[in-house]
Design a binder for these strands. Structure first.
Lengths: 341, 341
DNA sequence: TGTTAGCACTCTCACGAGTCGAGTGCTAAC
DNA sequence: GTTAGCACTCGACTCGTGAGAGTGCTAACA
């Protein structure tokens, strides 16, 4: 069976209506719509075809039809009209991001909040991670007699810091000297190169061996970037407004997934692609079987990227979500790049 | 009307039962309990009295009774048996906290997760804040040509750091020199004293005026400690398992409150008291009218404290919650103090 | 005087029957 | 190819009924 223009048109009308109402769409509803010049009976025939083709489902005989995951896929790929974000919304984003907080965590949190507020879905934003980080500077700042803060400044301007033990009695100037030494030998190296070099370096330094092993620990930890990347979620409660989640048990298990950093991580893993739309079963988390996830990336410099995701019901307003994400991606990129360059 | 021992006993039995089942308790149920030697009829008379005294409510004529907020208050203050945490649970806490992460944020997050897991309620944990912070050291670490990280090391070993702009071309050694200068003149001062002094100091330094005003900005920001304290929530989804939240709208507005840092802050504000129990209407957040909040403090050194809170239904298992919080308070105090001394 | 058995009463909850309405599929006519 | 007509289906809602749990009251008992 061929799928002709009229079928596309009807399918689009059904999806548009269902996105708005969440109520199965009947033939009369479509027929009444302006621009459709056919009677309910004709629509019914087409709908029957579309069902056979797998684009529509019927909850029960005497209800209307609802779009299948396959239909949403088609919708996102072909039918949907991409729009630009209107001026009011862009202003709103700028307003919320313009507080020069400079701290990545804070920006990420703000972004998650604004995204969820504007879409009325749930938003997840991850902090930036670099593919190829090289070290620019290592510095030790004394904190107590026996502990110092190790700060790693990277080529991308990103920072990692961690408290590590140092030999008692080391004073600020000594630590500064050591920092200079470390910086000189480490500058320009990637984290893993640095880690290796530090192994040799440490044995030479003798007395500082303990210190070095602490530094290595930190590097190891940072190499496993996932665990240390900030991850902010906004609008957890939003989804509960939709009839899809009128069942508390469903809502509960949905929220439980949001509490797992690990699962959120897989959700955001964007394969480096700029935009990703995953619909219902395409996400391999059973609790999200009737959710869709749209992700987008933002960039700082050449090779530092972060990901933002919007989680909503499969019948989400894809066009709006994508335009919001698109604009937000640029906004965050600008904001964070500006601070670091 | 006097409230005698038997009334206390019956009230306790009713509360204990209701905490377990969330179902209105009838006279027969109490009568059947071992240790109660009275017929349902006698119990009924006592229950009728307790209702008149305001300790029991009746959802409708032919249902059992449920404890009122007043009853829970009495329960917490007098009736409840305080218990020690059993060995298995203490081991579990130690296990989860023992990963020497050293980073406050991570410890706080872990604590929130363990607390919520162990109680099956929702947990909120705030980072430590000091009443009387004095500055021990200020240090600038170059990050890019025109930005540096300002690190404030305080008397309590706590750290605040923030990225600030610096004049272009300032190299690492210059910044280190400046750091030494700043540290010398600021050491031992409180944040607000430092802020004031910096005003004068800055005008003298001429060329560094801009830099100084950035430093002042940071201090101002840190003085308003609330905004910068980390705040972690665990087990958001837990409460949805309870019949109290079988209504989605209720669940939604509950979760919405959890998304507001501000409201969470007021929830935790413990007035410096070691333990706080607030029951239903005693919390002045309408969405929490049938919740209770139990908070406890942990301590680092003499004057640095943080707060942990458990949010559950009013019929929560207060005895368990308090014993878990009690132990966790000690555990966190030990963990964080150990790292910093 | 305190305790208990007995009993009528109340109210919720679960169940089933009946009705309504939205929507379908099919057929026949245009 | 399109449409009107019609019988049919199925969920949502309403109403009535009966069971069950629990109460309050009264009268009897120790």
């Amino acid at each position: 069976m061929k799928i002709d223009d009229r079928k596309y048109m009807i399918l689009q009308a059904i999806i548009d209506d269902y996105i708005m109402t969440a109520v199965p769409v009947g033939s009369r509803t479509i027929s009444r719509k302006s621009g459709v010049g056919f009677s309910p009976a004709t629509i019914r025939n087409e709908m029957s075809d579309l069902e056979e083709l797998g684009y529509l489902d019927q909850p029960h005989t005497s209800a209307g039809r609802i779009p299948s995951a396959k239909a949403y896929r088609l919708y996102v790929d072909q039918l949907m009209k991409h729009t630009e974000l209107n001026e009011e919304d862009t202003r709103r984003i700028q307003e919320h991001l313009n507080k020069r907080t400079a701290q990545v965590e804070e920006v990420i949190r703000q972004a998650a909040m604004v995204l969820s507020d504007m879409t009325r879905y749930t938003a997840v934003v991850s902090g930036p991670t670099a593919k190829e980080i090289t070290i620019k500077r290592l510095q030790l700042v004394p904190v107590t007699d026996s502990a110092a803060l190790l700060i790693i400044v990277t080529s991308t301007g990103m920072l990692k810091e961690k408290l590590i033990p140092v030999p008692e009695g080391a004073d600020a100037d000594q630590l500064y000297g050591l920092s200079k030494l470390l910086t000189e030998s480490m500058a320009g190296k990637s984290l893993s190169e640095a880690r290796e070099q530090l192994g040799n370096f440490g044995t030479k330094l003798g007395q500082h061996r303990e210190l070095m092993s602490s530094v290595i620990d930190v590097l190891d930890n940072q190499l496993d970037g996932d665990a240390s990347t900030p991850l902010m979620v906004g609008g957890r409660s939003n989804l509960l407004s939709y009839p899809e989640y009128s069942d508390v048990e469903k809502a509960r298990s949905f929220l439980a997934v949001l509490e797992s950093r690990e699962k959120l991580g897989t959700l955001l893993r964007g394969n480096g692609v700029e935009f990703t739309v995953r619909i219902g079963p395409e996400i391999d988390i059973p609790e999200f079987a009737d959710c869709s996830v749209v992700t987008a990336s933002y960039h700082i410099g050449k090779d530092t990227t972060g990901t933002m995701g919007i989680i909503g019901p499969t019948r989400m307003d894809y066009a709006r979500v994508m335009s919001v994400l698109n604009y937000m991606g640029k906004a965050i990129s600008d904001l964070l790049s500006g601070d670091r360059e």
